[in-house]
Amino acid sequence: MLTHFQFKPLFENKNIPGWNFSFYFKKQRYSGIYHQSGKIEWTANTPEQDDIDVLTSQIHELMLYHVYE
């Protein structure tokens, strides 16, 4: 389970899609960029391949809830 999820717009003009995000998972901090297409670009500490699918799904759900609601 990921904790301390945070996000902020990539650009000053908040109408331009794209967000920086960060969270903790298994006591490790991860961060990345969430693109409008749903693509995730990891910028720090790429998760292990076994965890990427689960984390990607959770990030999509959180972004849909917070950004696109």
Rank of each mutant, 00 (worst) to 15 (best):
M1N: 09
M1H: 08
M1V: 08
M1T: 10
L2M: 15
L2V: 07
H4G: 02
F5G: 00
F5M: 04
F5P: 00
Q6I: 00
Q6C: 06
F7E: 00
K8Q: 11
P9M: 03
P9I: 03
L10M: 14
L10F: 04
L10I: 04
F11N: 13
F11Y: 15
F11E: 01
E12A: 07
K14Q: 14
K14C: 07
N15W: 05
N15C: 01
I16P: 00
I16H: 08
P17Y: 02
P17I: 03
P17K: 06
P17C: 04
W19G: 03
N20P: 00
F21M: 11
F21V: 03
F23R: 00
Y24P: 01
Y24C: 06
Y24V: 01
F25E: 01
F25Q: 00
K26E: 14
Q28P: 01
R29H: 11
Y30R: 08
Y30K: 06
Y30C: 09
S31Y: 07
I33Q: 10
I33N: 05
Y34W: 10
Y34R: 05
Y34G: 01
S37C: 06
S37E: 11
G38D: 08
K39R: 15
K39D: 13
K39G: 01
K39E: 15
I40N: 06
E41S: 14
E41M: 06
E41D: 13
W42V: 11
W42C: 13
W42E: 10
W42H: 12
N45V: 08
N45M: 06
N45I: 01
T46D: 05
T46M: 14
T46H: 11
P47E: 10
E48M: 10
Q49H: 03
Q49W: 06
Q49M: 05
D50H: 09
D51C: 08
D51K: 01
D51R: 04
I52N: 03
V54Y: 15
V54D: 12
L55A: 04
L55M: 13
S57L: 09
S57K: 15
Q58D: 14
Q58F: 08
I59Y: 06
I59N: 02
H60N: 15
H60A: 11
H60R: 09
E61Y: 10
M63Y: 05
Y65S: 15
Y65K: 15
Y65R: 15
H66N: 15
V67W: 07
V67S: 04
Y68D: 11
E69K: 14
